[in-house]
């Protein structure tokens, strides 16, 4: 009985436990099938190799390299980031999830999942790209920070859109159509920051990184507030 009372008044601790439970569930389900991850990685490899192949070993100018890198990152991520919500609708488990935990825990855990997913995609795409396209990075730490914060922003913005797309029937291309314009500022800033890191033009201040982090924080906060409306049907 004491246990039940505790749960009826689930406080901050209850939230953390719910998030951990949902994360462990999502990781087990996703990594048992690895569908979304496989599609994303396969896309990234195919795109990188085919760009490198058509270039025929001639290195591109740094701006073109940055654009290509971010396009490949963006569309690889688009192939997988919506799966975490679309799967719940496809396998009709959304109601089970809905009655098991609060909307807040669900959003936070899916958000964390998508961030980890994005990090895996980045960890595969970036070295592959550097290898195949003969990219020389001059400012390595600035480059790495740009890639990480750009990825953070993309995953942050895409999570709430994934929830919307899942409720709209999980139509694949809709997700890219919704995400692209909203994330264009992120891509734009990331592309120029990446170009600078390739050229070795050290910025006096880290404005673009600040912009990316501010954007992530802002869009995560708005998404968190909007999520309960999108998720809870009544």
């Amino acid at each position: 009985m004491t246990g039940m009372k505790k749960n009826c008044a689930a406080g901050g601790y209850g939230l953390v436990r719910e998030i951990l439970r949902n994360l462990s569930k999502d990781f087990s389900v996703e990594f048992r099938t690895r569908f979304a991850l496989n599609v994303s990685i396969a896309f990234a490899v195919t795109a990188t190799v085919s760009v490198s192949l058509t270039a025929g070993g001639v290195p591109f100018p740094s701006l073109v390299q940055s654009i290509l890198l971010w396009m490949i990152i963006f569309f690889s991520a688009m192939n997988g980031l919506s799966h975490i919500f679309v799967r719940e609708e496809d396998q009709a488990t959304a109601l089970f999830l809905r009655i098991t935990m609060s909307a807040d825990s669900i959003f936070i855990s899916k958000f964390i999942y998508n961030q980890s997913f994005m990090m895996i995609v980045l960890a595969v795409v970036t070295p592959l790209f550097l290898f195949f396209l003969q990219v020389k990075v001059i400012l390595i730490s600035y480059f790495v920070l740009t890639i990480l914060s750009g990825g953070l922003s993309i995953a942050a913005g895409a999570t709430i859109l994934a929830a919307m797309v899942a409720k709209a029937g999980g139509k694949g291309s809709l997700f890219s159509i919704l995400s692209f314009p909203l994330l264009l500022p992120v891509l734009w800033v990331s592309i120029f920051a990446t170009k600078n890191s390739l050229d070795g033009a050290r910025p006096a201040d880290y404005n673009s990184l600040v912009f990316l982090l501010a954007f992530s924080g802002f869009i995560s906060a708005i998404s968190f507030l909007l999520f309960r409306f999108v998720w809870i049907e009544d």
């Binding site: 087990s28 389900v29 396998q91 488990t93 089970f96």
Partner: peptide
């Protein structure tokens, strides 16, 4: 505690 025909457990677990 609620359950119904639309409450589906996770197939892969």
């Amino acid at each position: 505690g609620y359950t119904g025909p639309l409450v589906n457990p996770y197939d892969d677990l």
